[in-house]
Nucleic acid binder design. Structure first.
Lengths: 239, 239
DNA sequence: CCTTCTCTGTGACGACTGTCACATTGCAAC
DNA sequence: GTTGCAATGTGACAGTCGTCACAGAGAAGG
């Protein structure tokens, strides 16, 4: 298999297309240069922890490549996955801005490349670059919308089956390949982790996936998933 | 009873202490004047709808007085309350910024006074007032943190009893009066609505409140609630 | 190939809680 | 007061889903 560090490395975010599309969309080169001056680039293997819930905020991580999961745990060890972060996202934003402790834990689920920016540097950067503020506002809005979507789906009276169907559809949109057979995608998480995303137990996820397979709505082989009947899945999701 | 319009009216947000503390904290008078030029003040009775989920975003509402609930409904009529908004909050922010439809419905639960700002005016205002951008970023962060708290509490495996206890504690903090008997507060929502906040049925909320009363952890008369044993409530909430 | 660990599939069982049904209370308008 | 409607209290019952227990399946490293 690929080494954990087997990634293309781009030394500046000039060459990082995801950052260019999000944090720096339509911004002048000077803004990027100012960013280069305060960021430090790091590589992380799969399973690395960027920051932990409850820590004082050191700063933000701009995810350039790879994906991470953002989780919250209760004292008794119950864990919820708030969302998956994709390349281009800024992690630790709300803690860094408010100065409150990180509220979530960020852990890579793939080999990742991320820029770290210290809190005081980042706050100064925002004050000096009003244009970036607008981008940050847009990104926060987007994250907030995703959070609301999740809250809505939890609005009980929604069954675990509905939430799972909704999640698979969402993944199909975000990272699926459409073919004539259906939508192919690779499950980025284990059943255990999927359970933590939809507020269910691992066993329930296994059973629900098995059920969808028997109904020929999906096929599974290993972590490969094929959505054969998008409409059926959609109706299960209650949309 | 009070008339729905029985509110003190301040014609500008110079005199609105909540806005002054949040959106305009530490900002020069010129910034406030620019805001006055684009806002329009309105009064709303209890039960008024500011905007509805799915509508194209017209702009933001800055809540000056009174509280509102923000809800999301599924096609089948199941409703979730995402949060309660207090004076000083800006409603409709994420939709106005992203240009996507309002994701939530805002409905007053008390007589309210709110400033409306049209979308294009608001976006221009943000571009011209970098300081306000920082305030908006802070407010979005705060809302996002609240959303994450809610997502965490839904991380199933949490029972309805835990979520209710957590909600009552939260309300005790935010709007309770501490006395020697305990923490007094007025329930801002009906059982039905509380149920929609914690993802449970109305009957479950009634039963759980009854149970807490029998255990002498709380007392109820009408919509008045007294938290007699904060610690017991806290342990029920799993904190 | 063998070992070990994690991940996945499945059965049994019980608790929580949603739903339905109805009684009761409270409040507001007339 | 009284009429009407919304909000609340409570019982019965069924379904979902969490938990426990264990078996098989894969993957990684020797």
């Amino acid at each position: 298999m690929r080494s954990p560090y087997d990634l293309e490395i781009s030394e500046t975010c000039h060459g990082c297309k995801f950052c260019a599309e999000r944090l720096f969309r339509n911004l002048p080169a000077s803004t990027l240069h100012a960013f280069d001056a305060i960021k430090s680039l790091s590589l992380y293997p799969k399973g690395a922890t960027l920051f932990v819930e409850g820590q004082q905020p050191r700063g933000v991580y701009v995810l350039c490549a790879g994906r991470a999961k953002l989780t919250a745990s209760s004292p008794e060890g119950k864990t919820v996955i708030a969302r998956l972060a994709e390349p281009g996202e800024v992690l630790g934003l709300s803690a860094t801005i408010s100065g409150e402790p990180y509220q979530l834990t960020a852990e890579t689920i793939e080999p990742c490349q991320a820029d770290f920016v210290r809190r005081d540097d980042f706050l100064r950067y925002l004050r000096e670059q009003p244009e970036v503020c607008l981008r940050v506002i847009e990104m926060l809005s987007e994250i907030l919308r995703a959070a609301h979507t999740q809250i809505r789906s939890f609005g009980k009276t929604n069954s675990a089956a509905e939430r799972l169907a909704g999640l698979l559809l969402c993944w199909g949109e975000r990272m699926g390949d459409r073919t004539q057979e259906g939508i192919h995608l690779k499950l980025p998480l284990t059943h255990q982790e999927i359970a933590q995303m939809i507020g269910a137990s691992r066993e329930t996820v296994s059973r629900l996936l098995g059920e969808l397979r028997h109904q020929r709505i999906i096929s599974l082989n290993g972590s490969g998933l094929l959505i054969r009947d998008r409409d059926a899945l959609s109706s299960k999701a209650g949309h």
